[in-house]
Design a protein around this nucleic acid. Sequence first.
DNA 1: GTAGTTGCAAAAAATTTGCACGGAC
DNA 2: GTCCGTGCAAATTTTTTGCAACTAC
Lengths: 148, 148
Amino acid sequence: MNDLTSLDMVSRLRSSGKRITPERKLLLRIIEQHAHLDAEEIYRIAQRDRPQIGLATVYRTLTLLKNLDIVRATDLGENHGHYEVRSEEHVHLVCSICGCVTDVPVPSALRAAAKKEQFAVQSTHFEIFGTCRSCSDKPSTASEAKRG
Amino acid sequence: MNDLTSLDMVSRLRSSGKRITPERKLLLRIIEQHAHLDAEEIYRIAQRDRPQIGLATVYRTLTLLKNLDIVRATDLGENHGHYEVRSEEHVHLVCSICGCVTDVPVPSALRAAAKKEQFAVQSTHFEIFGTCRSCSDKPSTASEAKRG
DNA sequence: GTAGTTGCAAAAAATTTGCACGGAC
DNA sequence: GTCCGTGCAAATTTTTTGCAACTAC
C-alpha cells in the first residue's frame, strides 16, 4: 500500500528529462490500476480514453518505463510479456485454470542464495504456476479459464 | 547428476505413444547437453548433424517435450524462450553482462509460501538477474557479452 | 499399411522501426 | 521555436500452421 503513486512516477519521468504526455500519463495510470496486463490489453483499455492511440506508443512507453525502473515485465507462461508497476519484489502465484495472479512476498532465503554465490542482484522474476485455492475447490469451473 | 538420461526420456516419449524419430533424439540430446539455449540456437546446432531439419520441427518438438514435462521453457529476459531438461527445480542466476546462467537450489521457504496460500504448485520459474561474480571482478570485460 | 512426423513456405503473433506531423517545454 | 513523442504503416522477430511427402511402428 506504500507504493509509488502516479504522481511520484510522473516526477520521476520528468526528472529524467522525459516529457509528460497525455499518452504516458494514461498508460501509467492503466498499468498502475491493473497489474499483469499484456501490451494488447493495455492498448485496448487506453483506446477507451484515447481512441487514436497507437500500439507502437504502448510498446515505446513500456520500454521507456522499464528503463526507468518504473514498470517491469513478467513472463506469465504465455509468449508475450505482462506488465506491472515496480514495487517490492514478490512471487507471482499464477493459476493455470483461471489465470489469476496472486502476489506473495519473497522469502529472504532466496536473496541469501544469490548472496552465497556472490551474485549482485538487480531484479528478480519469481513465478509459481499451479492451481489457486478457489479453482481447487470447484474443479468443474476449469472451462471458464481466462487463458489457454 | 542424478537426472534423466536421454534413454529415460526416449522411453518416456515411447510410452506416451509418440514415435522416436532421429530428429527427436537429436534435439533431445542437444537440449540435454546445452541448457538454456533458445529455439534458433538449438536449430543451428541440430543443422550440423542434420542439415535439412526445419525450424518448425524444433518448435514442434519443444512443444511436445514441454507437454511431456521432459523439458521446460524459461524466460531469460529476452523476448523468446530458452529451454532446458527438467530436473529438480532450481533458481537461475542470470548475468546481464556475460549472459551466463548459474543454477542454485530453491529454498524450501518458497514452497512453504505457496502452501500457505493453499496454492497447488505445478511448476516454478525463478530467475534472478544481476551480475555474476567474475563479471563483478573484471568490470571491463562487459563488452564481451554473449547476449544483448 | 497407416497414422504420426517432417520440411517447406506461408501465416500469425509479438515487437520494433522509419518518417512526417504535432505538441510539451 | 525546438526537439521529443506520436500515429501510421511497414519491417522484424518469434512461433504456429497447412499440406504433401515420408517413415516409424
